[in-house]
Simulated scan of single mutants.
Amino acid sequence: MLFDLILVAIDDQPHSKAALDYAIKLARRERAELMIIAVAPIPQITGTIDEVIDAGESGREHLEPFVRAAREEAERQGQPVKTSILLGHPAEVICDYARANNVDLIVLGKKRHHFGSVSERVIKQAPCPVFIAGESEVIKYIEKGAESGKWELRKDMRTKLEGKAKMMRIYIGEGDRLDDKPLYQAIVLKLRELDMAGATVYRGIMGYGGHQRLHKSRFLGLSRDLPIMISAVDTQEKINSVLPLIEEMVSEGLIVLSEVTVIKYAHGRAPD
């Protein structure tokens, strides 16, 4: 087994669900032990001992239903689990708990558009690999010396896509830009960030759009506003989830969807 003991840290935020779902799935696949913890943070401004204790108890009571629901979900899926609610600074508590229990992997949720401060601190201080669930990004532990750690960020490889799927085609101009970047490049990077199965950019030699203006390649020259088509294929659910974001990026152009059948989706080992 790659992991014998998996720790997932949850709180009362929506991104915790992705972390819990992934941790349960991985624990079942690896036949690993699963620990679920939640950390009630201590007040930023320290008061009297009684005030700190009261704040901790209040935080514990607030987190209890979330931890109970997480335990019930794990048990519903047939995964044995241990749970704890702890008090302290979340990142420090998570790392200390992982170290004390010889945890093999820490799973955290990712906020919508970025790592939170807790995630960043855990990544820097953790004694083991850290998986940030929600965007399929894996923080892999390489080596850790006494003073600093060395980490790398990799995409979790998609291994299966077959049968009925959706194809999204986006038609724009080569000269279109977004935030000082070619729009086609911004779209492809966004699709990759959103963990789409794949995307390809095609450069046309002639075409026109809503303005009826003809765009074509010049003989022995280059046109900087040729038609561009971006093609991406994935499940209907995935396409539906990314479509609103792509629509926001494309102020002028055409976006179409079509049904496709995936015969084969295969790739080699991800490059180091």
Rank of each mutant, 00 (worst) to 15 (best):
A199I: 01
S117K: 13
G198R: 09
M249W: 03
L194F: 03
D156F: 12
V201F: 07
A100V: 05
S84R: 08
I142K: 01
N102S: 11
E135Y: 09
I187W: 08
E152H: 07
P227S: 06
Q79G: 00
G109E: 03
G209Q: 04
E147S: 10
R177T: 14
Q77Y: 12
D180T: 03
G198V: 05
S241W: 01
V201D: 11
A55M: 05
C95M: 09
I172V: 12
L2I: 07
A126Q: 13
A27W: 04
A146P: 15
L222K: 12
R121E: 14
A38V: 10
F115K: 02
G134H: 04
R60S: 09
A270I: 12
R121M: 13
L257E: 15
S136P: 10
R121K: 15
R60M: 08
H89K: 13
S148E: 14
E33G: 09
N101I: 02
L108I: 01
G210A: 14
A32V: 06
K17D: 14
G207H: 06
M157F: 05
T46W: 10
Y171K: 02
K238D: 11
I36G: 06
G56W: 03
L194T: 01
P129L: 12
K155Q: 11
E51T: 08
D104C: 02
S16P: 00
F3V: 06
Q212Y: 05
S217G: 04
A18D: 15
K144F: 03
L86F: 01
M229L: 11
S223C: 02
M206R: 07
I94P: 05
G173Q: 12
L108R: 00
K25V: 08
L86W: 05
K124E: 13
K166H: 10
R60C: 01
K111P: 00
C128N: 07
A38M: 04
F66R: 05
E143N: 07
D179W: 14
V250E: 04
V52E: 04
E73H: 07
V67I: 03
G149V: 06
A186V: 03
E135L: 10
T159N: 12
A40N: 04
E51H: 02
A232I: 02
I139S: 09
G221T: 08
E72F: 11
A23N: 00
K25Q: 13
H113R: 06
P14D: 07
E162Q: 10
L105W: 04
E162A: 12
T83G: 05
R60V: 07
Q212M: 06
H62A: 13
P127Y: 12
S16H: 00
L108T: 01
I85M: 11
R29Q: 15
V201T: 04
A74G: 03
I228H: 08
I132F: 05
R71T: 06
E72P: 08
E64M: 11
T261W: 06
K124Y: 09
Q236W: 10
G116N: 00
M167A: 08
